[in-house]
Amino acid sequence: IDAAQIVDEALEQGITLFVVNNRLQYETSRDSIPTELLNKWKQHKQELIDFLNQLD
């Protein structure tokens, strides 16, 4: 699994991931984030931050 897949998966569930001051953040209108997704974010945090920083 790679960062792009995780970002896409989040988007499919209505969650936008982004980076502020090198910290992973998210925006969503959902009430809660699925635990499975949160765990993936934690496991791949640095990859996600690097990936999202490249997009900007």
Results as ranks from 00 to 15, higher is better:
residue 1 I to C: 11
residue 1 I to F: 13
residue 1 I to D: 07
residue 2 D to K: 11
residue 2 D to V: 14
residue 2 D to F: 14
residue 3 A to V: 13
residue 5 Q to N: 07
residue 5 Q to C: 07
residue 6 I to N: 01
residue 6 I to E: 02
residue 6 I to D: 02
residue 7 V to T: 03
residue 7 V to E: 01
residue 7 V to Q: 02
residue 8 D to W: 15
residue 8 D to V: 14
residue 9 E to W: 05
residue 9 E to A: 05
residue 10 A to D: 01
residue 11 L to Q: 11
residue 11 L to V: 06
residue 12 E to N: 12
residue 12 E to R: 15
residue 12 E to T: 11
residue 13 Q to I: 08
residue 14 G to P: 01
residue 14 G to V: 02
residue 14 G to W: 04
residue 14 G to M: 04
residue 14 G to N: 05
residue 14 G to E: 04
residue 15 I to R: 00
residue 15 I to N: 01
residue 16 T to G: 04
residue 16 T to I: 15
residue 16 T to Y: 15
residue 16 T to H: 14
residue 17 L to D: 01
residue 17 L to G: 00
residue 18 F to I: 12
residue 18 F to G: 05
residue 18 F to D: 03
residue 19 V to I: 06
residue 19 V to H: 02
residue 19 V to K: 01
residue 20 V to A: 09
residue 20 V to K: 13
residue 21 N to I: 03
residue 21 N to P: 00
residue 21 N to Y: 06
residue 22 N to L: 05
residue 22 N to H: 07
residue 22 N to W: 05
residue 23 R to T: 15
residue 23 R to H: 13
residue 23 R to Q: 15
residue 23 R to C: 15
residue 23 R to W: 08
residue 24 L to V: 04
residue 24 L to F: 04
residue 24 L to N: 00
residue 25 Q to S: 10
residue 25 Q to V: 14
residue 26 Y to F: 10
residue 26 Y to E: 01
residue 27 E to Y: 15
residue 27 E to H: 15
residue 27 E to P: 02
residue 27 E to Q: 13
residue 27 E to K: 15
residue 28 T to W: 05
residue 28 T to V: 04
residue 28 T to E: 02
residue 29 S to L: 11
residue 29 S to R: 12
residue 29 S to T: 11
residue 29 S to I: 08
residue 30 R to V: 06
residue 30 R to F: 06
residue 30 R to K: 09
residue 31 D to C: 10
residue 31 D to F: 07
residue 32 S to N: 10
residue 32 S to A: 10
residue 33 I to M: 04
residue 33 I to R: 01
residue 33 I to E: 02
residue 34 P to R: 03
residue 34 P to K: 04
residue 35 T to F: 12
residue 36 E to L: 07
residue 36 E to R: 08
residue 36 E to S: 10
residue 36 E to G: 08
residue 37 L to E: 02
residue 37 L to W: 06
residue 38 L to S: 06
residue 38 L to K: 07
residue 38 L to T: 06
residue 39 N to H: 10
residue 39 N to T: 11
residue 40 K to S: 04
residue 40 K to H: 05
residue 40 K to F: 09
residue 40 K to C: 12
residue 40 K to R: 08
residue 41 W to A: 02
residue 41 W to H: 02
residue 41 W to T: 02
residue 41 W to Q: 00
residue 41 W to L: 11
residue 42 K to Y: 11
residue 42 K to S: 12
residue 43 Q to R: 12
residue 43 Q to I: 12
residue 43 Q to S: 10
residue 44 H to P: 01
residue 44 H to Q: 03
residue 45 K to M: 15
residue 45 K to S: 14
residue 46 Q to Y: 08
residue 46 Q to D: 10
residue 46 Q to M: 08
residue 46 Q to W: 10
residue 47 E to H: 07
residue 48 L to D: 00
residue 48 L to A: 00
residue 48 L to M: 03
residue 48 L to P: 00
residue 49 I to R: 02
residue 49 I to H: 02
residue 49 I to N: 01
residue 50 D to V: 09
residue 50 D to L: 10
residue 50 D to K: 10
residue 51 F to A: 02
residue 52 L to R: 00
residue 52 L to W: 02
residue 53 N to F: 07
residue 53 N to L: 13
residue 53 N to K: 12
residue 54 Q to V: 07
residue 54 Q to R: 12
residue 55 L to W: 08
residue 55 L to Q: 12
residue 55 L to F: 10
residue 56 D to N: 14
residue 56 D to F: 12
residue 56 D to M: 13
residue 56 D to S: 13
residue 56 D to R: 10
